[in-house]
Design a protein around this nucleic acid. Structure first.
Lengths: 219, 219
DNA sequence: CAAATAATCAAATGATCGCTTGATTATTTG
DNA sequence: CAAATAATCAAGCGATCATTTGATTATTTG
């Protein structure tokens, strides 16, 4: 029980979390498993660089992988990895002035609907008072989404806009608080005169709050 | 709300957590504030090296400092820093085989008393059925300790042994699960034929479990 | 079997990390 | 005020990190 050595191992996890690309990768993998080239594309890195980052994450045992055909799919080793990421993010939001500032600026122009989370939101979705849409790619939606949410990947947003009523409130969510896609989606919905707001939460926040997720049964 | 940039800031926290000496420093500071030279001594590092580590921790806003005379006392910026450390430690215990192994080996020779934690332990301490001793330095005891615990710094252990009854169960705790002092203390107590067991928890685990701490009012 | 694709590996390079040594700045104490 | 102490800073070093480039290994597909 030598603390010296044990903290050396814990530091491997800190090391894995010491690079922004790796943190983004963890957040992406928290949505659903992904192949290296998809991840490289999403991160804006070369295949080799992405592979190297994943190697670091695996050496910290934060991710696992599975080979299928010529793809290697990476996934979080455990739900606890998502909790750790959340813990890091929240510590940052609480302590780092640069993040506090951005979060505060963002919150200034939010409205009542975006504060509607958890059970209360679920109730309104169930009763049909609110339309909840998931802006992530279909694969991520299928891997786990908020109950009652409808999948509207960004490339299908125009279709959705055409079919939606102007009145009924729409709540959109994406990959979590730092994800820009939801913001952009809401902007487009509002430009189409729809009553849309953004929900900051992603599946990590949702699960951590003890709320249930729905999963599409894979074929 | 650019994720790219926000994760860069979160990564500063990961970087702070990527070094075993800094993690140990955080755990020590979680017990009580400390001056740089005391910390350097406890960590086994030079003053300059310790100062540099503290600079990294401060640049991640994990610690604050206060100058008193010619000493600079560092403390955790926030209780949430303790939670983060706990989160890292627990992720490691869950995912890293090297830590799992050590923890498992340790648990093999534990006995029933060491599993006695939380309210149940408090009840027995209150009723006088168990003696709870805090093996940390007096300053750390005064900064916050388990309710009903008696301060027995390691250098006063012999005195305590002389005054203690052979029968009544003794539970000893220290700076947390990776702290060796509690182990050594229990060994010495047992060599003196006392009925002693080690409690793995430290104040971080205790507080995270929602249990109260007692604090000595500073003079 | 040859060509194409996904991923890893290996080598090289510039940047950063962790520490030491010695100088510098406050602060206290004789 | 001079000497001592606590802490930081600055320069220098070897080690590690993040990336690129090009080669290598599987795997699929024509």
């Amino acid at each position: 029980m030598n603390g010296q050595i044990l903290y050396q191992h814990v530091a491997r996890i800190g090391l894995a979390a010491s690079n922004p690309h790796r943190l983004r990768a963890l957040n992406l993998l928290a949505q659903s498993e992904k192949s290296v080239d998809v991840l490289a594309d999403l991160l804006g890195l070369s295949l080799a660089a992405t592979s190297a980052h994943l190697k670091v994450l695996r050496s910290a045992c934060l991710v696992d992988s599975r080979k299928e055909g010529r793809n290697v799919f990476y996934r979080l080793a455990d739900e606890s990895v998502g909790s750790l990421l959340l813990s890091l993010r929240r510590t940052g939001e609480r302590l780092l002035p640069e993040i506090r500032e951005v979060v505060r600026d963002y919150h200034e122009d939010r409205d009542a609907m975006s504060q509607l989370i958890g059970e209360e939101l679920l109730d309104r979705v169930r009763s049909g008072a609110v339309t909840l849409i998931d802006l992530r790619p279909d694969m991520e939606y299928r891997a786990g989404h908020f109950p009652g949410a409808r999948s509207v990947p960004v490339d299908q947003l125009e279709q959705f806009i055409g079919s939606a009523g102007k009145r009924k409130p729409i709540v959109a969510y994406c990959r979590g608080p730092y994800c820009v896609a939801a913001l952009e989606g809401v902007t487009r919905l509002r430009e189409a005169k729809l009553n849309a707001t953004r929900l900051e939460w992603g599946v990590l926040e949702w699960r951590e709050a003890g709320l249930p997720l729905e999963r599409e049964n894979a074929a």
